[in-house]
Amino acid sequence: MKHSFLGFGLAAAMAVSGAAASAQTALTYLFPAPDFLPAFAPFQLALGKGYYEEAGLDVTFRIGQGGADVAAQVAVGNADLGGGMGDTSMIVRANGLPIQGVAVLGGQGLTHIAWRDDSGITGPADFGGQSIGVIGFQDTAYYNLLAVLAANGMSRSDADIQGLGSGGLIQNMIAGSVSVMSGVPEWIVAVEDAGVPLTVIPARDVFPAQAQAILASDAMIAENPEAVRGFVQATIRAIEDIIADPHQAAADYVQIVDRHAENVEQIERIMRFYVDSVYAPAEGRPLGAFDEAQLQEIQDFYMANEIIATAVPISDVYTNDFVTE
């Protein structure tokens, strides 16, 4: 009798477990670059710490071929959600892709401008004639660089801007082949860790540069709003963990993404950079929320500099409906 009771209990537990598993909503998230990059730490932490599962989601990560590919795949439904920048939706929506930003992952901007201390540069006003590295010419960091130049009375033709890819950008900054870079925190930390002193400023000092964003199609928002809400809030929860304790977050992250296990100190430095200069909340809006006035300013600059050919209603490129309960 005892054996039968235990067997019944096990069967019941398995049935409950199976029911819980079947209740999970499958969701695919597409990264624009390899998912082991520290920029994507909030997603890895949210997955590894069970935050997506608690939100009722069975999340699968996939890797796309850059931001344009992510936007296209999300727009046609080949991925449920994807990663981009806070300005991505205004660029691709003008090309007919019905994409919106559903969260921006920080109150500050991702792009930072750094220059070698041995270059003689004292600030962006000295960028004329300098060799400046970016990863490419269809990238937000490049567009943000153009805004920094414009704020100092210069255009793209006033500097030697080179598209080098992420690896080439780091290598050329270390070698001194370029004196200035427009990029993201982990690249800057990599150059500094190679023994190159840098001066760093946020592009946001002169332009409303945006952080990373979670992108969704209009159809996904209409048909699966609770899945979108669950993913957004679980990801923001992971960012809040990083803000609260970067040291512990770095330790947790390298357990989840073990290729970084030997670099936990560098990962912590990168996370502290993100906490101070990217994730830091903007006054007057919750973490994750877009600022419509900032997006309008970006679109105006992009139109004036022929980065985009068609303006779209700014209210169509984002929603803040999912960032709070």
Rank of each mutant, 00 (worst) to 15 (best):
A94P: 00
V104E: 15
Y143I: 03
G96P: 01
V148S: 07
G84Q: 02
V102M: 06
G123F: 12
W115L: 05
M154H: 11
Q138D: 15
D139H: 06
G109H: 03
S155G: 15
T111G: 12
G120S: 08
G107L: 12
G153F: 15
S131T: 03
L149V: 01
F127G: 00
M154C: 08
L81K: 04
N152W: 11
I113A: 09
G83C: 07
D126L: 04
R156I: 01
N144C: 11
Q108K: 14
P98G: 04
G83W: 08
R116A: 11
N144R: 02
A79Y: 09
N152I: 04
G101I: 01
G96K: 09
D139P: 00
S89D: 11
T122Y: 13
V104L: 11
W115I: 02
G153R: 09
I135Q: 14
A141V: 01
D117L: 13
T122P: 01
V102W: 07
N152E: 10
I113T: 08
A103P: 05
G86R: 02
V148T: 10
A125Y: 12
L97R: 01
F127R: 00
T122D: 14
V102N: 04
T88F: 13
G82N: 05
N78T: 01
G106M: 08
I113E: 10
G109A: 09
A125L: 04
V76T: 13
G106R: 03
D118P: 00
A114C: 02
Q138R: 11
V102P: 02
V74T: 01
A151N: 14
Q100W: 04
G82C: 08
G106T: 01
G101N: 03
A114E: 03
I132N: 07
S119L: 04
N95T: 04
A79Q: 03
A75C: 08
I99S: 05
A75M: 06
L105K: 01
G82V: 03
V74K: 04
R156W: 07
N95A: 15
P98E: 08
L146E: 12
S155D: 15
L145H: 12
N78F: 14
I121G: 10
H112K: 12
L81H: 08
R116W: 09
D139T: 08
G101L: 03
R93H: 09
H112W: 03
W115P: 00
G84W: 10
R93E: 04
A103R: 05
T111E: 13
V102S: 05
G96S: 07
G109N: 06
G136N: 12
N152T: 02
A141P: 00
S155A: 14
V76Q: 14
Y142V: 03
G82W: 11
Y142G: 13
P98W: 06
I132L: 11
R116F: 09
Q138P: 00
G128D: 06
W115G: 03
A141D: 13
N152S: 10
N144P: 02
A151E: 13
M154V: 02
